[in-house]
Design a protein around this nucleic acid. Structure first.
Length: 439
RNA sequence: GGGGGCGUGGUGUAGUGGUCGAACAUGCGGCCCUGUCAAGGCCGAGAUCGCGGGUUCAAAUCCCGUCGCUCCCGCCA
């Protein structure tokens, strides 16, 4: 017998069906049993008159919450039933896998186990409908991102995650034994996507894992996360990259809103608003003026950088003043940027770079890259780097590499911002952090 | 790496020197129950209060250490 999805039951009234799912709750009474069965499309009530089949009634009584069941029965209309006005009258049932749960389940969401405990039992935590929804939304978002890139002639790439040398300074690297030598896990596809520019691909994107050996204990950091990266050639400045990014992101919001608007409102109490394009832009110097005007005090040692508090303050300011969740902060000092960011012709202290803040959280860093070999080499030296380990990278820029730029974007941080999730651990399938390698 | 907070039955909490023989909710087991719908009622099992040391007549409660978790900062996406 073919399985019927719970959402399709209204079309099957009067028919015998097979439905499959998890036992959401069981109400076991003197003469009747009510099973609420849940599949990924919804919930339905299964009713059973015990005296009709005492053996079956006894079996039903043994089923634990969240057991996996196959249920056979007849669909009947019944206005008394609050759940959809119909029920399945139980005829037979198979317990595929009985459960005894280590944690309380929904609908008891007001005393949800604490986060770390739920991480231990993530495969059960993920059964909650709101958690599955997060990954349905992520799927829609990634599809939209890809569609937009492909529409614009971009090539999808998959760069190696095992590397022989660090890709950029700054973030700490994980090292691993590699036969007789040492290799590193990629902390960014940066060098490889630039290589694609030298290779003449003109536009590339990659959605893939990124590894950072930073012992960061915050609600927004992971040691492994999904990086969303792109790089495009023949740009005139970082403005071209920002213009692409904001349209790409607005398109992604539009698609997510089309598919999930009502669910997002119902589940996360978020009114999804497609951000207005163009996003507000402010140079770092202007950001400092704004922070000064609203009384936010940056520690003096920041010197042209922002701290998380300043980013939140700017996000709130932009929301208030421009009614936008997003803002570009541009023209960061060379001192706080990697050596490959291009500097302004008229002010070599500032880079043609940007960060994108969403609701005051940094979700993207991008820039026009320095594509002139001699200039790039000088900038590396200025940063105190040794040329030898990066010589292979520098060589990309000796044989006709076009001007180019791009960005890196954090997928889970984006979901956090879009759905107002309080912690990145709620936005990722399996969290990886300094103290979390399981499950 | 630095700083703050928290660790009490399976889970979530209350209790912050003696009335604690540790409470409440939920989950679990049993019994009862005109079709329930976050069902309800009754009964029961389940915690040496993270661990070690100390102060005190008396410690879940105060102090020290330690481990774990968590948030913030640093760093970043």
């Amino acid at each position: 017998m073919e399985r019927t999805l719970i959402k399709d039951l209204p079309a099957k009234i009067g028919e015998s069906v097979k439905i499959q799912g998890w036992l959401h709750t069981l109400r076991d009474q003197k003469s009747m049993q009510f099973l609420i069965l849940r599949d990924k499309t919804g919930q339905a009530q299964v009713a059973h008159w015990k005296k009709g089949n005492l053996e079956l009634a006894e079996l039903v009584s043994t089923i634990g919450t969240e057991s996996a069941l196959t249920v056979y029965g007849k669909v009947v209309e019944n206005p008394i039933v609050k759940l959809g006005g119909l029920e399945v009258q139980l005829e037979n049932l198979a317990i595929e896998n009985n459960a005894e749960l280590p944690l309380p389940f929904e609908p008891f969401s007001d005393n949800l186990p604490e986060q770390d405990f739920r991480m231990d039992w993530r495969y059960l935590d993920l059964r909650r409908e709101r958690n599955r929804l997060i990954f349905e939304i992520q799927t829609t978002a990634e599809q939209a991102m890809r569609d937009y890139w492909i529409e614009h002639g971009f090539i999808e790439m998959h760069s190696p995650k095992i590397m022989g040398a660090p890709s950029e300074s700054g973030a700490e690297l994980f090292s691993l034994g590699y036969f007789e030598t040492t290799a590193y896990l990629a902390q960014s596809p940066q060098f490889y996507k630039q290589m694609a520019m030298a290779a003449g691909f003109e536009g590339v994107f990659e959605i893939g894992p990124v590894f950072r050996a930073d012992p960061s204990f915050t609600s927004r950091h992971m040691t492994e996360f999904t990086g969303v990266d792109m790089e495009m050639s023949w740009v005139e400045s970082h403005e071209d990259v920002m213009a692409f990014l904001e349209n790409w992101l607005a398109y992604t919001y539009t698609k997510v809103k089309e598919v999930h608007d009502a669910q997002i409102k119902a589940t996360f109490d978020v009114d999804l608003v497609v951000p207005k394009v163009p996003f507000p832009r402010m140079k770092m110097a202007e950001a400092y003026e704004i922070l000064k005007s609203i009384g936010y005090k940056l520690p003096p040692e920041r010197k042209g950088d922002l701290d998380p508090g300043a980013e939140r303050a700017l996000g709130a300011y932009v929301k208030e003043k421009f009614d936008n969740d997003y803002v570009f902060v541009t023209d960061w000092p060379f001192t706080v940027r990697p050596f490959y960011h291009m500097v302004h012709e008229d002010n070599r202290l500032l880079t043609k770079s940007f960060d994108l803040l969403g609701k005051g959280l940094e979700i993207t860093t991008g820039a026009q890259r320095e594509h002139r070999y001699e200039v790039l080499k000088d900038q590396a030296l200025e940063k105190g780097l040794t040329l030898e380990p990066i010589q292979n990278y520098l060589n990309y820029f000796r044989y006709g590499c076009p001007p180019h730029g791009g960005f890196g974007f954090g997928l889970s941080r984006f979901l956090m911002v879009m759905l107002d999730l309080p912690n990145i651990r709620e936005a990722v399938y399996l969290f990886r952090g300094p103290n979390r390698l399981q499950p």
